[in-house]
Design a protein around this nucleic acid. Structure first.
Ligand SMILES: NC(=O)c1ccc[n+]([C@@H]2O[C@H](COP(=O)([O-])OP(=O)(O)OC[C@H]3O[C@@H](n4cnc5c(N)ncnc54)[C@H](O)[C@@H]3O)[C@@H](O)[C@H]2O)c1
Ligand SMILES: NC(=O)c1ccc[n+]([C@@H]2O[C@H](COP(=O)([O-])OP(=O)(O)OC[C@H]3O[C@@H](n4cnc5c(N)ncnc54)[C@H](O)[C@@H]3O)[C@@H](O)[C@H]2O)c1
Lengths: 267, 267
DNA sequence: AGCCGCTTGTGAATGCGTGCACAAAATCCG
DNA sequence: CGGATTTTGTGCACGCATTCACAAGCGGCT
């Protein structure tokens, strides 16, 4: 397992340890006895991790554009957040800014990459090479960001062995074996909902600890497996709720608060 | 007042008004004067709205399976959440349970649909008919859940006029006009990142108030427009963080306490 | 060198979300 | 018909997240 290192990482960094997220479990264990032995590393809130990934993308865009330093204000507006929140997020990973000046783009970039574990590539597998699976397998944004797609799986006999995006499709019965052999870290499920749980179980068998699920079902997994789901229908329904809310608000004369233009347009 | 009209159904329900979410704006304006005049309707937390959509899906699966009533415990485990949280979520939309028995599946279904604004279909447009856009246009799960795809747009001359999923592709210059004409409520952006902002602006011109964005950029929109983004690279990076964290934890002997069901929230 | 303006980093306050625990209600059963 | 049983609905407390506000620190300017 060659620890594939990304750009010329200063892997040295002796001071900062890799922090751990803090108790998100029920009844957090922070009793008086809970004081954990590791003196240093502060915890990173889950919500902050998600934003760090956004900052990373904005930073890379700025680097391409030639910027050398950024202020928290600049970076914050580009990322669509409050500047205080941004500074607090960055403070979780260390102190890399210069007061009165801002942050060095490349320093901040590599520090965030380090904390997110992006100095090491994560092999990814896609299961279910249908409409969505094809798009995912062909998408250049994954390998480009350190997530090479190194295995594809499906159950359809017509697909087995066919190369998609340059990689031949394997049969789902081989999931455990192939995942273990190719050191797959992340499994992406793009099968019909009915098959998702079974596929997930196979992935876990193959030693996959992280799953990204596109199928609209709630997966049951052992404690040590992390699942994130992307559910487009739910996203649309949340938007639908806002449509209804806005229509309601527009119906009655609402206090100035939020509205900006809201001129004549009707639903 | 044009209260959101929902189809014929049981509009009776005199008690429950359509509630509004509370301050989600940046720099929320909830100053001391912010006390809103509407006495009754309680606010639904944003997080609860996302979960209601999940409950809805689980409920429809249960209805197909022939269930007539569910207890909060059943529904909660099926949805992957705490039963207390589920009951609290449901309490935001009204009181439809029977103590000692549970909830009637069809009643709960229609009440959640009502609150989410799903009694009315939301016309949806997809912009950028590439790999991802094709998958979205062909996906049956959208029209099946009340989000008919009624417009497709692209800039590629070879695509204009070509039917995809039975619907011909229009040119992006026609976005404002076509969106207004077809009463598009939700716009889905699946273009390359560089084009996303321009496309978004056109959608807003066309009267679209809700946008679902797949392009990895932060969109700038007027206050009255709601944007949700689906960013797969960020999802993978969050998973990557957990890989790194677990590797770290596994390095040292860590107390068992750790993890429970975890995730839940849709990003 | 010393002062000034700018920006970071963070303590503190507030608000929100979550989970617990229990009273209220409704059905079932003796 | 009354009590036992079950399950809802919610008050309450706690912890996380967000935001404010400001001292600390750094560079540049005079
Ligand atoms: N297409 C979209 O835009 C879209 C949007 C949102 C959600 N989804 C979800 O993503 C999933 C895939 O969608 P799709 O449109 O690509 O569907 P699809 O039918 O085009 O593709 C499904 C693929 O999975 C394969 N498959 C079926 N059973 C399998 C199994 N047991 N193991 C492995 N592979 C199996 C099929 O052979 C097929 O290739 C579905 O769950 C769908 O709900 C899709
Ligand atoms: N394919 C995936 O699995 C995937 C995954 C995550 C994110 N994304 C993102 O989704 C977006 C689309 O991805 P894709 O793989 O479908 O790309 P793609 O290149 O296959 O398709 C892009 C489509 O957008 C069209 N287009 C280009 N400029 C346009 C413009 N100005 N207006 C309208 N249409 C325009 C192109 O003609 C093409 O049809 C990208 O932003 C990508 O980063 C894709």
């Amino acid at each position: 397992m060659a620890r594939v290192q990304r750009d010329g990482g200063d892997d040295a960094a002796p001071t900062t340890e890799l922090p751990a997220v803090r108790g998100q479990g029920p009844a957090a264990v922070n009793g008086p006895a809970g004081a954990q032995g590791n003196g240093r590393a502060r915890a990173i809130p889950e919500a902050a991790v998600a934003r760090l990934a956004v900052y990373l993308r904005v930073l890379s865009a700025m680097a391409e554009q030639g910027s050398v330093t950024v202020s928290s204000e600049e970076l914050a507006t580009a990322a669509g957040v409050n500047s205080a929140k941004l500074r607090k997020d960055l403070s979780y990973i260390g102190t890399y800014g210069t007061r009165g000046v801002g942050y060095e783009v490349d320093v901040l970039t590599s520090e965030i990459q380090r904390v997110l574990g992006l100095t090491r590539q994560q092999n990814t597998a896609v299961v279910g090479i249908g409409n969505l699976g094809h798009a995912l397998a062909n998408y250049g944004g994954f390998p480009g960001r350190g997530f090479p797609v190194t295995a594809l799986f499906d159950v359809d006999p017509d697909l087995i062995g066919v190369p998609v995006g340059g990689l031949p499709v394997c049969h789902i019965d081989d999931i455990p074996e192939v995942c273990a052999a190719r050191n797959i870290a992340i499994g992406v499920i793009a099968t019909p909902p009915a098959a998702a749980q079974a596929v997930c179980n196979r992935l876990v068998e193959g030693g996959v600890h992280c799953v990204l699920n596109f199928a609209p079902v709630v997966l049951q997994v052992p404690d040590h497996v992390e699942v994130r789901k992307v559910d487009l229908a739910i996203e649309l329904q949340i938007l639908s709720f806002h449509v209804a809310r806005n229509a309601e608000q527009r119906g009655r004369g609402r206090t100035a608060a939020a509205r900006a233009s809201s001129n004549g347009e009707v639903v």
